[in-house]
Design a protein around this nucleic acid. Sequence first.
DNA 1: TTTGTAGTTTATAATGATTCTAAAAAAGTG
DNA 2: CACTTTTTTAGAATCATTATAAACTACAAA
Lengths: 132, 132
Amino acid sequence: MKYIEKLRNSGLRPTKQRLQICEVLFNTDKTFHFTINELEQKIKKQANNKISLATVYNTVHAFEKKGYLKQIPINSSETYFDTNVTDHHHFYDLKEEKLIDLENSDVGPINILKKINGKKIKSVEVLVKLED
Amino acid sequence: MKYIEKLRNSGLRPTKQRLQICEVLFNTDKTFHFTINELEQKIKKQANNKISLATVYNTVHAFEKKGYLKQIPINSSETYFDTNVTDHHHFYDLKEEKLIDLENSDVGPINILKKINGKKIKSVEVLVKLED
DNA sequence: TTTGTAGTTTATAATGATTCTAAAAAAGTG
DNA sequence: CACTTTTTTAGAATCATTATAAACTACAAA
Ligand SMILES: [Mn+2]
Ligand SMILES: [Mn+2]
Ligand SMILES: [Zn+2]
Ligand SMILES: [Zn+2]
């Protein structure tokens, strides 16, 4: 298994559940944007066994803390996560409730001129809302 | 009262509660970023009577629907609203959990090059996260 | 004014995503 | 194997938000 090392190196034991979630999340080139419930659905399909909801939450939070996932700020009833942990921009399709990555070249450099005393910029992200 | 007309024109009856919330929200030049609970606190201070939590929710949602308030996408346990309903950008101070408006001139024009078939851009907003 | 009606407020209950709990299971160590 | 630590899990708890339904209010027609 290719994720065993990754987990071990992060101080996470490579359990059956975590490896299975790794497969769902990371075994693709494409960025995966998801809610906890969407992830749960995908796990159910991709395997016969089911992982308890608490474990899905635990794992997603553990992966987020280790830097393998990030939360995307969207006003939705559910929290969105992203397998692309780089600083990047999004389309948000309001009807489909789906996120789509934007390349930095699709947006161009953003130069924040205003400064706040004693504060550093941690991230700069653009959210482009789409309607029909 | 200066808000009676505004409410009537929107098809909202100018009730005591709504007028009081208008005073708190709009009786200032400054943009006001708030959560429902922060608004409730401010109402309590600014007047003797208290408005029920359900009415605060109802009113904020009514004002949002009429275009007097907008929701700001932030991953927080509470939803943030903004009296500045124009398309604009924000600092988000992660420690203080406070939003700060950015002028468009502080960010510069953003040109989204990517297009999605059949979708129109509704808004383009930048969120700049600040840390110490 | 009085009366009728639709709109509004309110306390309270319900909902639903997320977090907590604590016991059982699994992993790591030697 | 024996032992410790971590993880999983079902279910309970939490908490922001929404729904409910009864009382109240704005408003205008009679
Ligand atoms: Mn969804
Ligand atoms: Mn706050
Ligand atoms: Zn993304
Ligand atoms: Zn603002």
